[in-house]
């Protein structure tokens, strides 16, 4: 495999040609916010729009999860245009996410709480309207609670259920603002086959799926990969 050299935020890096900028950055200790992309998946849905970076020679910011690295590439994760887009995207998510961190069972593992300070965005968004979705909270499962209002539609739970476990009991349903992760017929989780398995809960970044006791394992899907010693 051919390797190329590039710089991210001034740091000189060697990486596999064609690897996505996001992974190269994360593996080299440079954090770029992201929610919807999964390293193991073939393709990024590029849906959350948080991982914008600026690339020298391109007039518009690009999403790091879809941008392959090439020789001599100069990436800036802190460019004003990229940050503006990432901030707006994050603000949009937060404006329809109930901010009740004090009572939230997932506050310790919440990725939104990690992204906010990184982008220097306050949790309560002043310039936008609150757009609550008003969906019922599903606590039918004995193990976990599903609050679709907190969901950021990253699709990690859908992916784990379908690709890793081969079950496919939950997926996206409806369209537009109504788009939601649901079971067949929008039924409570306990009535669907999935009530006993909790793999989806371990990967949820936003507290939409959380264990009833507030504990339980959490898995970081996009962990940086240790560089091999060779």
């Amino acid at each position: 495999m051919k390797t190329v050299s590039l710089t991210i935020d001034g740091k000189e890096i060697r990486a596999k040609e064609g690897e996505k900028v996001l992974w190269v950055a994360l593996d080299n200790g440079i954090y770029i916010p992201n929610l919807c992309v999964i390293r193991e998946a073939l393709q990024s849905p590029a849906a959350c729009r948080l991982c914008f970076v600026e690339v020298e020679g391109k007039d518009k910011p690009v999403t790091a999860c879809t941008e392959p690295v090439i020789e001599g590439m100069v990436v800036n994760t802190q460019g004003p245009q990229a940050l503006r887009l990432a901030r707006t995207a994050f603000e949009l998510l937060m404006a329809s996410h109930p901010v009740e961190c004090a009572h939230c069972l997932s506050r310790d593992s919440c990725e939104l709480l990690k992204i906010a300070p990184h982008l220097k965005v306050r949790l309560k968004i002043k310039r936008l309207r609150g757009l609550p979705r008003g969906l019922p909270i599903d606590s039918s499962s004995p193990l976990f609670i599903y609050d679709p209002n907190k969901c950021v539609l990253c699709g990690r739970c859908v992916w784990v259920c379908r690709e890793r476990l081969g079950i496919g009991d939950i997926s996206f349903a409806h369209r537009g603002f109504q788009r939601v992760v649901a079971t067949f017929g929008d039924e409570p989780m306990a009535r669907a086959r999935c009530s006993a398995c909790d793999e989806c809960v371990t990967v949820c970044p936003s507290g939409a799926l959380c264990f009833k006791d507030g504990k339980g394992p959490k898995e970081e899907l996009n962990r940086p990969v240790e560089k091999s010693k060779s």
Binding site: C48, T88, L131, R175, G176, F177
Partner: peptide
């Protein structure tokens, strides 16, 4: 367009709604 948004990406789903 808001009604017809597929709802996948943040800007279109939530931005147009705002």
């Amino acid at each position: 367009t808001q009604w017809e948004s597929c709802g996948q990406c943040t800007f279109c789903r939530l931005g147009t709604k705002q």
